[in-house]
């Protein structure tokens, strides 16, 4: 059951900031993650500050800068938006593949980026490193779904299906807090355990993601998101890959390859990008790119399969996109 908490429905961003300054204050947007976190008692919550009524954070609009997606836009809205589907198909695919229809109707893009990890030790009755304990239970435990890249001390995987696509498109994330606004490349939003094991994003307490800005896509860009899961709905990525490739004829002139289910953050694989850049997009090179992506992988006892899985999914995604 829930701990006792107060619920505040913010009237404005400013109002939200003032309430969020209190100790134990947490943001509520779609509520799909915070509800579970509270029920599982992952952290103390004294007040829930709902921003769900802030219309400024809703809607998708286009300007010369690109496509602006409000933080409160739901995953369903993104998955069904014609502009997103037309120009940023990887994002539409990522949003559509997250969770279940009910949760996509409720869950927001801001929440999807800022959600807590799904590691079953973190979510369960285990006082793990990320919760202030002294060890990561995944190291010697049931680490089937844990990371093979970027793990250091903590071996979560980042749960977002939209973040890999947004990174592949070079999106920016707008952040606002009491002290003002800032905009950062979304790639810089996420925090590795080696940097700070207790946080997943660079958001300071009281800061809110307000908007995502997708730059206009380059011409000749092909992009996609592909996800493998242990069941076909209502499941996080066991392995996923977002691709954004620029092609000159048959040759890949530049590439962004970002993995989900691989690392504690959405994992941009420079090795994979380097492997395919300047090459013909064919099966042999696709295979090499998959191998390059996992060249630095350090699997745990039960997740070695992910090396083969990422090789397979990257190869498949590259072949599929070449035929598209």
């Amino acid at each position: 059951m829930m701990p006792e908490f107060t619920y505040i429905r913010a009237k404005s961003l400013k109002d939200a900031f003032s309430h969020l300054s209190g100790e134990g204050a947490r943001i509520h947007a779609g509520g799909t993650d915070i509800l579970g976190c509270m029920r599982d008692k992952i952290f103390d919550v004294k007040s829930v500050v709902s921003i769900s009524g802030l219309n400024d954070l809703k809607g998708i609009r286009e300007t010369g800068e690109g496509l602006h997606i409000g933080a409160l836009v739901t995953l369903t809205e993104i998955a069904e938006n014609p502009a997103v589907n037309g120009r940023y198909p990887a994002l539409a695919q990522g949003a559509a593949s997250a969770s279940s229809p009910q949760l996509r109707n409720q869950g927001t893009i801001g929440g999807n980026l800022c959600q807590k990890p799904r590691c079953w030790y973190y979510r369960g009755e285990f006082h793990c490193l990320r919760k202030g304990g002294d060890r990561c239970f995944a190291v010697a435990g049931e680490n089937h779904y844990h990371c093979i890249l970027g793990g250091e001390g903590c071996y979560i995987v980042h749960p977002s299906d939209t973040a890999p696509a947004l990174i592949a498109y070079g999106a920016a994330v707008h952040i606002e807090g009491r002290k003002g606004k800032r905009s950062i490349p979304i790639e810089n939003l996420f925090v590795l355990p080696s940097q700070d094991v207790t946080r997943e994003t660079v958001l300071e307490p009281g800061e809110i993601v307000t908007e995502i800005l997708l730059p206009p896509p380059a011409k000749q860009m092909k992009s996609s998101y592909r996800k493998v899961r242990a069941r076909r709905s209502w499941d996080f990525a066991v392995a996923g890959v977002a691709l954004a490739l620029q092609l000159k004829g048959d040759i890949v002139s530049s590439a962004r390859i970002v993995l989900s289910g691989a690392a504690p953050i959405p994992w941009r694989s420079k090795e994979a990008e380097d492997s395919i850049t300047g090459k013909i997009l064919d099966t042999a090179n696709a295979r090499k790119t998959g191998a390059a992506a996992v060249s630095g992988a350090q699997p745990l006892e039960h997740n070695g399969y992910k090396i083969q899985l990422f090789r397979g999914i990257i190869e498949e995604a590259l072949i599929t996109i070449s035929a598209a």
């Binding site: 799904r118 979510r123 369960g124 285990f126 239970f137 010697a140 435990g141 069941r231 076909r232």
Partner: peptide, 24 residues
């Protein structure tokens, strides 16, 4: 079960214990 450390069941919810969905 967390057989090597605590013996506790780690997938005690409907997300981690995966019954098939309509899509499966």
């Amino acid at each position: 079960l967390d057989r090597n450390q605590t013996g506790k069941m780690v997938n005690r919810n409907w997300h981690d214990y995966k019954i098939p969905t309509a899509m499966d």
